[in-house]
Computed example of a mutant assay.
Amino acid sequence: MSLSLNQIIDFQTNGYVIAEDVFTPADWQPVIDEIERIISARAVILHAEGKLPELHEDEPFERRLTLLARQCPEIARQFDIMFLLGPAMFDFLRNDKLLSVVESLLGRELSCNPIQHLRHKMPWKGEGEQPIGMENVPWHQDAAVTSDDSEASEIITFWMSLVDATAETGCMEIMPEVFKAGYLEHQAEGGTTIVPTLLPHVKPIKAECRKGSIVIMNKYTPHRGTTNRSDIIRWSLDLRYHKTGARSGRNFHPSFVVRSAANPDNVLTDYNEWCRLWKEALGKPATQKAHRV
């Protein structure tokens, strides 16, 4: 599925577009099954160690990790793509439907950007807004988590929810058209966020979408997370792609070719090599900043 001309114009005009119903349940299910297997494997180990009294084996995907993490927060640590390194996730990064959407905006020479996340925004029953962290993010531009030398690179974000993303489950809010102003200075206080005095006075839109849709954003489009006030986890994938040969914004982590008309032999199809690249990168001492601030 490629984007329509109107969708491409909307993206170029507003700095974002929501492509509804790109994926079917069959596209998602291997990823969800893989996540469930990882949760179960961790739960069994922690239960055997006496850290997890109840396994909650009958709970659904949308609820189980919340119940387990309430007993033992350790189960949800480092629960991200580069740490889990699942084969189903590797396959999804190269999903043909996804790459056809990406190609609509970036052309036929595509690389998967190393800035990629699996997020599990837990339900929040406390007072006020959900705390800032990996489960909830403040107003920012994705360019703020890339290096200065990638300023000329067109790195586009493709955000997908594994459940319906609604105001109740904590969908994103987006500021349309602001991307035209370019990079806004960020600060590290309170999470990587736009300096409050520079935050544009623009009415945001709620990026609600059904499971199977993609929220596509320019790297300069300000956006933030909102509080999950539902009873389920808002599982989502935050993936980025760039033109092959451009700077990735994080050269100490591995990007890899996912589609190429000119050099198809350069496309990485070897799951074990992908794992090796990430393990090698994460095994090195951190000597460079991941964020600009």
Score class of each variant (00 low, 15 high):
81 I>Y: 14
91 D>P: 01
192 T>Q: 04
9 I>M: 00
60 P>G: 10
253 H>S: 05
100 S>C: 12
2 S>G: 04
75 I>Q: 01
1 M>F: 06
63 R>Y: 01
59 E>W: 15
151 E>K: 05
68 L>S: 13
58 D>C: 03
210 R>Q: 15
97 K>L: 05
235 W>K: 06
51 K>G: 11
168 E>A: 08
42 R>I: 05
79 F>Q: 04
59 E>S: 12
198 L>G: 08
225 G>V: 07
57 E>D: 14
250 R>N: 13
149 D>N: 13
144 A>Q: 06
144 A>L: 08
287 T>F: 07
30 P>A: 11
42 R>K: 15
48 A>N: 14
172 M>V: 08
235 W>H: 07
112 C>L: 04
98 L>H: 05
16 Y>S: 08
7 Q>G: 00
119 R>K: 07
194 I>S: 15
271 Y>Q: 03
224 R>E: 01
188 A>Q: 12
266 N>M: 05
7 Q>T: 03
222 P>H: 06
69 A>H: 07
20 E>A: 14
181 A>L: 15
48 A>I: 02
162 L>T: 04
51 K>Y: 03
26 A>H: 11
163 V>Y: 02
202 V>G: 09
279 K>W: 02
132 I>E: 01
146 T>Q: 12
92 F>N: 07
61 F>P: 00
52 L>T: 14
120 H>F: 12
262 A>E: 08
37 R>M: 08
188 A>D: 11
227 T>V: 14
226 T>I: 10
99 L>G: 02
92 F>H: 10
100 S>D: 12
241 Y>M: 14
121 K>W: 07
191 G>D: 02
149 D>V: 12
153 S>W: 08
24 T>Y: 15
260 S>P: 02
201 H>I: 13
33 D>R: 10
60 P>R: 11
264 P>A: 01
35 I>N: 02
176 P>R: 09
70 R>Y: 04
131 P>Q: 11
95 N>Y: 09
116 Q>K: 06
190 G>C: 13
106 L>G: 06
20 E>I: 02
91 D>K: 13
115 I>Y: 14
192 T>R: 09
286 A>S: 13
113 N>D: 11
68 L>T: 08
159 W>Y: 05
255 S>I: 04
65 L>H: 03
6 N>T: 05
111 S>Y: 05
287 T>P: 02
83 F>D: 15
217 M>C: 12
19 A>V: 07
282 L>N: 14
76 A>G: 11
112 C>M: 07
198 L>C: 12
209 C>T: 03
68 L>R: 02
131 P>K: 01
31 V>G: 13
27 D>H: 11
136 N>S: 11
215 V>M: 09
118 L>T: 14
204 P>L: 06
148 D>R: 13
185 E>N: 15
72 C>W: 03
71 Q>T: 13
170 G>F: 03
156 I>K: 13
49 E>K: 09
100 S>W: 00
258 V>N: 03
104 S>A: 02
184 L>P: 11
91 D>A: 13
110 L>T: 05
3 L>E: 00
117 H>I: 11
293 V>F: 13
281 A>V: 04
72 C>P: 14
5 L>H: 01
18 I>N: 02
253 H>Y: 08
221 T>D: 10
158 F>S: 05
128 G>T: 10
212 G>C: 05
